[in-house]
Simulated scan of single mutants.
Amino acid sequence: MGGDHTVAVLALSDEIVRGRGTVDDTVLADVRAAEVTDVEVAEIVGHLALNTLTNCLNNVAGTGNEWPLVTPRSHS
Rank of each mutant, 00 (worst) to 15 (best):
T26Q: 11
S74C: 09
V23M: 00
P72R: 15
D30W: 00
R20C: 13
S13H: 06
G21D: 05
L10N: 12
A49H: 13
C56I: 10
G64Y: 06
A33S: 07
V39K: 06
A42L: 05
I16M: 03
S76P: 08
V41M: 04
A61S: 12
L48F: 12
G3Y: 05
G46W: 00
R18P: 00
E66A: 15
D25C: 07
T22P: 00
A49Y: 10
P68Q: 13
T54Q: 11
A8C: 06
L48W: 04
G21A: 06
T71F: 09
L12K: 09
G46E: 05
I44W: 01
P68K: 12
A33C: 01
M1K: 10
N58Y: 11
T22W: 05
G2I: 06
N65I: 07
V70R: 13
V31E: 00
A11M: 02
E35K: 12
R18I: 04
S76G: 15
H47C: 06
T22Q: 09
C56N: 14
D30Y: 00
P72D: 14
S76L: 06
V45M: 04
D30L: 10
A29N: 09
D4I: 03
L53T: 14
L12A: 05
G64H: 06
W67M: 10
V41F: 03
M1H: 12
V60H: 02
N51Q: 14
N51K: 12
A8H: 00
G21F: 03
S76T: 12
N58G: 10
L57K: 04
T52G: 02
S74W: 10
N59R: 15
D14C: 07
E15I: 04
G64I: 08
G46S: 13
N55S: 10
G21E: 04
M1G: 15
T26L: 04
A61L: 14
N58P: 04
T52S: 12
L12Y: 03
T37N: 01
L10W: 02
T63L: 11
N59K: 14
L57W: 08
H75Q: 11
S76W: 08
A8P: 00
S74D: 15
R20P: 00
G21W: 03
N65F: 05
V17K: 09
N65E: 10
H47L: 01
V45H: 04
L48G: 15
V60N: 02
R20L: 03
E40P: 02
A11D: 08
A29D: 08
A11P: 01
S13Q: 06
L50Q: 11
S76A: 15
S74H: 09
G3A: 10
W67S: 15
N59D: 14
S74K: 12
V31A: 06
D38V: 05
V9E: 00
S13C: 08
V7A: 11
A8T: 01
T26C: 06
T6H: 12
D38M: 04
G21L: 06
S76F: 08
T54M: 07
V7K: 08
A29W: 01
D38H: 08
T54L: 07
L69W: 15
